[in-house]
Each structure stands twice: as C-alpha cells, then as structure tokens.
Amino acid sequence: MYPLRVDNLSLQLPDGTMLCQQLSFEIAPGEILVLMGPSGSGKSTILSWLTGTLNKRIRATGEVWLGETCLNHVAVEKRKLGLMLQQDYLFPHMSVGQNLKFGLRGGSKSERESRVSASLKSAGLEGLQDRDPATLSGGQRARVSLLRTLLSEPCALLLDEPFSRLDVTLRGQIRDFTWHSASRLPTLLVTHDEADVPANASILDLSGLR
C-alpha cells in the first residue's frame, strides 16, 4: 500500500472564487485524514478532483500522487480510488450478490462466489446474496456499499459524508465497521459532523483556509 499525497491544490470556481489555495497533504496507509468545513466550502469538490470527475468549468491546478505514481493524467477508472457517497447507489437492477460481484476483480467463478459470501459474512450479512437491495435496511445497504468498494481493491478510500443519511443509532456501528475495514488503506473522510471523526484521525479544517 502506498500513501496518497496531494501537492499544491488550488480550485477556482467560474466566478473567480477560490475554493482552496495551495492545499497539500499526505495520508499514509492506515491513516485517516478528515476534511472538515461547512457546506459549500469545497470538500466534495476536492473529492471530485481526486477521482477525476471534476466539473470542467472549475479550474484546478495541483498534483495527486499515489506512492510514486502521479494520477493527474490517469483515467478515472484506472485510478483505483474507492469512493463512497452519501447515498449508497446500490444498483437496483442487480441483487446484493451481483452488486458485490460487479465490484469484485478477477478470480474464477467459484472463487468469486466464495469471496462474495465471505465478505458478506464478515459484515454480518450472511446469506443475503440473492436479496434485492431495495429490501435491505439503511445500515445493511451502507455495509454492502462499502463491501462493494473494498472488493474492487482500491488503493485509497474516499468517503463523502457516508454516514450522514444513516439513523443516529446505526451511525456508530457503521463507523466502526468502516474504520475496521479500511484499516490498511489511506483514507480521506469528508464531513461536517465532528462525531464522525475517529480518535486516531488528523483533521484539516477548510473553513479557515478560504
């Protein structure tokens, strides 16, 4: 696993407003960096830039590195940055198992089958392969969504307020599950809720940078 590094990132909106200027940070494998700030402060825009799906009207300068590889000119689908959004976006035309297989890379048919059931088991979702995602609870959906991302073998994890739509009672449980699953990856969390921040994380507050 490699560290995820951002060098001198500046983002400028079409009206000239700077979302951030000369922002640099590095996240080592197993570390969690939290980007905090009120809505509109550009947290999600930074994630879009990292994944390579930034709106073309926003001007960006700066570099993103994964270990010794510069990702700036790597296609979105080759960057291997796992992304989790507020909504879980489990694909409605696939069963839970098919959603996971869609994320899973490689392997023979039987290996794929057993990896999917093993990962469901690890998340306490044993035997849910054939269920329609629409019939799952919010917490189950969040876990399946994270499993799908992890099965795609990302080199880093980007989380965009992944807990904000969950029940308050569920949040703690899903947070623990996420931090446990992501323990070997560099992880970037975007949130405005301080309760989301795990104990060992470092914090980058964007509200002060403007």
Partner: peptide, 28 residues
Amino acid sequence: VRVDAALRIGRTLGYAPARCWSRLILPL
C-alpha cells in the same frame, strides 16, 4: 436513472464509461 452517479460510481469501481453505460445505465 441517475446517470451521473452511475458513471461516477462505475468508473471509480474501475469500469470505462462505455461499460458503465452498458452495464449500469442502459439496463435501467
């Protein structure tokens, strides 16, 4: 059918845009 989200999720999972369309968007 939430095209933008499907493209974003599909691509970060490692699929090229044309495959996101054929596997995620067109079936819906």
